[in-house]
């Protein structure tokens, strides 16, 4: 078990589904949803939430600042 656990909250309606965050994620947590938001973009979501370490990489590359990151030490 990872000592540090994290989670992200995506502002779905502002996400443009550019796909920059999945490759930035070192633990392959994020992917783009099959569903779309009101604008028709495949928004980012945590497909694999248990692996998230809250490293902030996804939020750093996000051009639209839609990702909020939380981190907790166990």
């Amino acid at each position: 078990m990872a000592k540090v656990k994290g989670t992200i909250v995506v502002d779905i309606e502002r996400c443009k589904g550019c796909g920059l965050c999945p490759p930035a994620c070192p633990t392959n947590v994020i992917s783009l949803a099959k569903e779309v938001n009101a604008k028709g973009f495949h928004y980012a979501y945590m497909a694999n939430p248990d692996e998230c370490t809250g490293c902030v990489n996804c939020a750093l590359v996000c051009p639209d600042a839609v990702i909020t990151v939380y981190r907790k030490k166990n």
Binding site: M46, P49, K72
Partner: peptide, 12 residues
């Protein structure tokens, strides 16, 4: 509204 897989224990 789309669903999110947020861990509510951590998202504080």
């Amino acid at each position: 509204m789309a669903e999110q897989t947020v861990n509510k224990d951590i998202a504080k």
